[in-house]
Design a protein around this nucleic acid. Sequence first.
DNA 1: ATCAAGGTTGTAATGATTACAACTGTGCAG
DNA 2: CTGCACAGTTGTAATCATTACAACCTTGAT
Lengths: 138, 138
Amino acid sequence: MKTSLEVLKQELLDNNIHLSHQRLKVLEYLIQNHNHPTVEQIFTDLHKDISTLSKTTVYNTLRVLEDAGLVRVITIEGTETRYDIEVENHGHFKCKSCGKIYDFEIDMNVLSSPDLEKFQISDKDVYFKGICPRCSQH
Amino acid sequence: MKTSLEVLKQELLDNNIHLSHQRLKVLEYLIQNHNHPTVEQIFTDLHKDISTLSKTTVYNTLRVLEDAGLVRVITIEGTETRYDIEVENHGHFKCKSCGKIYDFEIDMNVLSSPDLEKFQISDKDVYFKGICPRCSQH
DNA sequence: ATCAAGGTTGTAATGATTACAACTGTGCAG
DNA sequence: CTGCACAGTTGTAATCATTACAACCTTGAT
């Protein structure tokens, strides 16, 4: 499994990133919660276990993980930033009614454009919005 | 031409939206500036002409235009919200070096996923990031 | 045992966006 | 003509996520 903790820990070590207690907890949290949590959610939940945890640390850690390419930042809406363990080939759908974000499989490799011939592309994000099945059956 | 002022004015009238002076100015600005301006840029530039203009009005107007489907909101980065006259079938590329946002043509209709069979999709956004040709040559 | 470097913490500052209440202008009824 | 109602505009204050910063803590090497 690609998102196993052990594999990711090794990736951090390969990137010369120190595996502190807090960082591991954030990483574990993201592995166990694929529901695209916000910083607030991550902080609130982890705070129950680590009472000394600071929100700044959560921000710092997420940036470290993002820079290492382990975590994907979802900015589908300007008002909220969400985080996701990096998984290839999927887009994000946000329901305008209930607000839930769904993953969907999509082949990013198909996504290319002659306009970008000379561009170096490092990130591809696909965001859809609309109404999810649960909300549309009202 | 699809983004002509006259056509868009008619669309606003069709949506029962009053064509105030300020709203027309914002609309004109977006037609003339396809460089994905922020609220700050729109406000600063228009303020030169309309000295009484309020930033709140710019926010209000952009929301009205967005709801009417004439304007597309670009949230490629959580820190900045940008606005674009609605044009079909194009994605946005942001250069991580110079920060410029480029349009590129892409066939949104190709973008679909079996996972979304029962979803009602109303918006499709494609965001790429990387290095633009101007920044990568040296 | 000591020291340096990196990591963590809490508070203060920032900055974009929204809420809100007062003001303005325009069209219509009388 | 006059005044009223409504939609749009304005400016300030409030909100909220994020960042800056300085002090503190941990850990590992010498």
